[in-house]
């Protein structure tokens, strides 16, 4: 039987950051985000220990740990792993059970995930190799525009008339932005144009999978209010606000899977 005090952990090791969520009895005890270390196991270790510390726990207290993210298989203390696609679905569904579509925009990837009324994966699509439609795209564009990534969203919200950025290739987009700057176009308008271009690219995947309300947005780009706004316009619906940090959804999903797997394991042992 599962004891209410049992501790599970979910660790998400991505290409730019690592996240850990510690849970017990269906509640989040703590969560942490760090920049990646040179090695995935180091990232996993550091972020998990940090999260454990905030919960006043140590590695030995973990009863089950599931890892996810691109470094998911190199984590020695994890009992198992699962793809981040399933995790994002489960995590967002747990945070807001009305969610049926999850748009996850990470640093290198963009995924659109459909889940059923139990939070299980129904279907998904992932972007092609190119950077358009990922966090990387915004990073490059912010640099071209000469602002910090976090300033890009608020800047775009000041715009009254977004400029048209038409290209679908991030290299040509960069060139377009430079041209617009040379033409003396207002920077908020260009920033808004960038957000729109980004949202349009993401919509290709949304259309491919098919949207079903409610729609949630996860990953770092969810913190950019202008992209959220553009996406809502294209979606013609509101994006629901998750009550958790959108960046930890993957780790949360992994922690939820850890709970499920621990339950199963204990059931087996009892039999």
């Amino acid at each position: 039987m599962m004891d209410n005090s049992m501790i599970v952990a979910g660790v998400d090791v991505g290409s730019l950051s690592g996240e850990a969520v510690i849970m017990s009895n269906g509640n989040i005890l703590s969560q942490e985000i760090i920049r990646v270390r040179p090695l995935p196991e180091q990232t996993a270790n550091d972020v998990t220990i940090k999260a454990l510390e905030s919960a006043k726990l140590s590695l030995d207290d973990i009863d089950y740990c599931v890892s996810t993210g691109y470094g998911r298989e190199m984590i020695p203390f994890a009992n198992g792993s699962i793809s981040e696609i399933s995790c994002h679905g489960k995590g967002a569904f747990w945070a807001t059970p009305s969610v049926r579509t999850v748009i996850d925009i990470g640093g290198q990837d963009c995924k659109v995930i459909r889940v059923d009324d139990k939070g299980n994966l129904l279907n998904f699509m992932m972007n092609d190799k190119c950077a358009a439609g990922t966090g990387r795209f915004l990073e490059v564009m912010a640099k071209t525009l000469g602002v910090e990534l976090r300033e890009l969203g608020p800047l775009a919200l000041e715009s009254k008339a977004p400029t048209g950025i038409t290209s679908i290739c991030s290299i040509i987009c960069q060139f377009e932005v430079m041209m617009l700057l040379n033409e003396g176009k207002d920077r908020p308008d260009i920033a808004a144009g960038i957000s729109k271009a980004m949202a349009r690219r993401v919509m290709r995947l949304v259309k491919g999978v098919g949207k079903k309300s409610d729609v949630a947005l996860t990953g770092g780009v969810a913190k950019n209010p202008a992209v959220v706004k553009s996406l809502q316009e294209f979606l013609e619906m509101e994006i629901v606000k998750l009550d958790i940090d959108p960046q930890i959804v993957g780790a949360l999903g992994a922690a939820l899977v850890a709970t499920e797997r621990l339950k199963k394991k204990l059931q087996k042992e009892t039999i």
Binding site: T166, S167, I168, I172, F175, E176, M179
Partner: peptide, 12 residues
Amino acid sequence: EHRFTPDSELKK
């Protein structure tokens, strides 16, 4: 498809 190579790109 104008988005593939916009007018400005062709001209450059």
